[in-house]
Design a protein around this nucleic acid. Structure first.
Lengths: 148, 148
DNA sequence: CTTGCGGATTAGACTCATTCTAACTGATTA
DNA sequence: TAATCAGTTAGAATGAGTCTAATCCGCAAG
């Protein structure tokens, strides 16, 4: 069931949008709510279907727009795996993604700072990187703790 | 200019194909040759255009087929970046990819074993991974040493 | 030989995630 | 009230990749 945003999350949304000169709209709120409600790295279609329950007139194009906006102002991250549909993830802490070969589920894997550091250290001089993407493919036997 | 395969490379191709019960064909040879000739992570289209010079009748579908076959028998790796066209890379040593934001060029970054190890160590128990993909996005000022 | 088989190749149709376009909405400003 | 402008909308367009059905070709059996 989709809860409303907490006060804190609403502020977070508003602040991020305002900072890049954009407004909070009912559609953006709905999409953001969906993302926070079930942190299972949904595809655009999944977000669309979940959000439609709450806002029937919502269009797919708007979901694309909202998500792009959120990515642009740093509210969510895109997760790409091979050429599958892009997924979205509201976890902003540095983390890698683990994709279960069998279930297709995506799990967040925390990235300790020292690992980040050792990764950055392998770049030859002259290479300056802003974004590092790390993804594992394999099997997870874990009884689903949290699939963030 | 596209050279022929060296004896060594041809054997490598033949062995890998035979091992998975497939044959060396002129098309596969042409595609493999293109991949080895310019190790700049070409897209399927780029491979197609380069190979056509040497083999005019070659079809795009065949290039897709050949590349898929090669990936299947471990001859080349796929390189995906966001949702851009898939690129192909004949470098089999463990390495990460660095994508230049400006030029779009992809560079290989060597992955020392200890970094691989530290990466594997961040997986919680129960997570078992076969493939690790690491990609950087940023800017490289390096005067192109080698863009493998 | 020549026939038949199976893997490989081919052209073109198809799929489907994503992007684009042009019209519309609704809040805010002049 | 009119003009403006960001945001939304439906549907068309795009384009990488996949599928399909026909053909090709090398080779083993007759």
């Amino acid at each position: 069931m989709i809860q409303n945003l907490t006060e804190h999350d609403r502020e977070h949304l508003q602040e991020a949008l305002n900072k890049s000169g954009q407004k909070v709209t009912p559609q953006r709120e709905a999409v953001f709510t969906v993302l926070l409600a079930e942190r299972d790295h949904p595809t655009v279609d999944e977000v669309f279907n979940r959000a439609r329950v709450v806002m029937p007139g919502l269009s797919l194009a708007t979901v694309y727009n909202c998500l792009e906006t959120f990515v642009g102002c740093g509210l969510v991250r895109q997760v790409n795996h091979e050429r599958e549909s892009t997924r979205y993830c509201p976890n902003l802490a540095p983390h890698a993604h683990f994709r279960d070969k069998e279930t297709g589920q995506v799990h967040d894997i925390e990235l300790p700072p020292e690992v980040m550091k050792s990764l950055r250290s392998i770049l030859p001089p002259g290479f300056d990187s802003e974004v590092i993407e790390i993804s594992f493919l394999g099997r997870a036997q874990a009884k689903d703790t949290h699939s963030n």
